[in-house]
Write a protein that binds this DNA or RNA. Structure first.
Lengths: 150, 150
DNA sequence: AATATTTATATTGTATACAATTTAATTGTT
DNA sequence: AACAATTAAATTGTATACAATATAAATATT
């Protein structure tokens, strides 16, 4: 572990850091979803929950959290709201009473058709070439995979 | 605007979307900063504010917001906390009384030396090659630039 | 000059996020 | 079986984020 030759000035410049554009880009892109998701009555995180349920089917709070990188402190209140809106059911598992099973209602399942508009609209809004998008996704997944290890 | 041939099923898969890995990766990377930033008594967003001030010098709330992609609803309460901690000053401009000038205190300026450890520690924590980091940053900046236009 | 428009912050309200703790159920050990 | 350790959600507390609105100051218009 040798002394790093780069001075504090350079190290701390926003443009020299990976994390800042990552943070800013994520926020700005998510923000662009809002008008399209408003039409579905969903927030971005709720939309993620719905996509996970549409794709993988019914699960538990914990499994949902592992898939979406969210913990129960975020999910529990959000799932309660979504249950109140009639999109899903929260049922304590009889098999393992620690678990709460999340399942889609008919309304929740039906919302999928309307939701297909969202990625299409965003695709037109973002103007990222398919190549750039693929490369970006690849690099982000690589970091996510690496970061999970420790 | 022709009918898109890709079915809803495919469009709505988490793995087929750029935004989800972007969102998840940003969150997970920011979370890794926490232990290092705790030593400085900063949150990640506060760290961004400090980096902007160290790099660009004193500014106004609005300019800070444009640089960091944050609005006054986020910045005002946060800057008040940072002022209370003695890191910066908030002074209503006499020249234009709508503006609030943000300037570093001696303590805030001094924190820069300790903060240089943070990007070094994160660099070791992330294990991203310089090439991947450069490519990723380039693509993220490209999206951020494109998204600002509309 | 008086009024309208724009601009810069601040405030309000809603929705995440997550660390830390709590509670209750299940599993592992002796 | 009894107790310890682990696991799954829920809760608590703190800190963003941002849309919408409010407020006040500066600028533009008539």
């Amino acid at each position: 572990m040798s002394t790093n030759a780069i001075p504090a000035d350079e190290l701390l410049k926003l443009e020299n850091q990976l994390c800042f554009p990552l943070y800013a880009c994520s926020k700005e892109v998510v923000r662009r979803y809002t008008p399209f998701l408003d039409e579905l009555g969903l927030t971005y995180t709720q939309y993620l929950v719905m996509m996970a349920l549409w794709e993988y089917g019914n699960t538990s709070v914990g499994e949902l959290g592992r898939r979406l990188f969210l913990d129960s402190g975020t999910l529990t209140p959000m799932l309660k709201k979504m249950e109140a809106k009639g999109l899903l059911r929260r049922v304590r598992s009889t098999e393992d009473e620690r678990r709460v099973e999340i399942s889609l209602t008919a309304d929740g399942e039906a919302l999928k058709e309307k939701a297909a508009r969202v990625p299409i609209a965003m695709g037109q809004c973002l103007t990222v070439s398919p190549e750039d998008a693929a490369e970006l996704t690849r690099l982000l997944r690589k970091i996510l995979d690496a970061i999970q290890v420790d």
